[in-house]
């Protein structure tokens, strides 16, 4: 009995020390991690909507989240919307950030997250694939798939198409 108490006490002390170290680390890094994540999203938003000078506003409607991109500081005119499309690729989820103008024409897309096969599916992150989207109607994009990586290409194309369609559905009954 005394033995068990002693073992428990030592383990408790070790865990106490660990918890102390971890809480200190957490407090020290919390602010920085949050700031980093925010600036990363902000940077990506600017990348896919380069002409939005007035910043972005996150809007959630019917469980669907999107960003409004304002043309200038007055925040009256919008130059378009930014959405994040998620599809199922060959190696897992593929998340794509898409900037569209008010008519639904794609400005630029950016692959946020992908775990596709290096050298094959991972080519969806390359300019030669992504740039096909620019200037096309997001609701019916005509995209040439990468040879040998049909699943990855389709994951991007289909998810972009679906998400842009959904965006305009939501906007449509909004006003």
């Amino acid at each position: 009995m005394r033995d068990i108490l002693k073992l428990g006490f030592v383990l408790f002390l070790v865990c106490l020390g660990a918890a102390l170290c971890l809480s200190l680390t957490y407090v020290f890094t919390e602010g920085r991690i949050e700031a980093m994540e925010l600036s990363e999203i902000e940077g990506s938003l600017k990348e896919v909507m380069p002409d939005a000078q007035g910043g972005f506003e996150k809007i959630t409607k019917d469980d669907f989240g999107y960003y409004k991109a304002y043309k200038d500081e007055q925040r009256k005119d919008i130059s378009g919307y930014v959405i994040i499309a998620t599809g199922k690729g060959y190696g897992g989820a593929v998340a794509t950030m898409v900037g569209v103008d008010t008519a639904g024409v794609i400005k630029i897309i950016k692959i946020l997250e992908q775990k596709e096969t290096p050298g094959l599916g991972a080519k969806i992150s390359e300019e030669s694939f992504k740039s096909q989207f620019s200037g096309q109607d997001g609701r019916k994009p005509n995209i040439m798939a990468i040879s040998g990586a049909t699943i990855s290409s389709r994951a991007v194309t289909e998810s972009v198409k679906k998400t842009v369609e959904r965006l305009f559905e939501i906007l449509g009954d909004g006003r």
């Binding site: 002693k6 073992l7 030592v10 383990l11 070790v14 865990c15 020390g17 660990a18 170290c21 971890l22 680390t25 957490y26 890094t29 920085r32 991690i33 980093m36």
Partner: peptide, 28 residues
Amino acid sequence: FIPSRIRIPCYIVIIATFVVMVERFIKA
């Protein structure tokens, strides 16, 4: 100070602590 019967759990707690610290710092 570590009784040999619980040394492995103690080591794992210590290692895990440093790993989480590294992870947080890399994230930050």
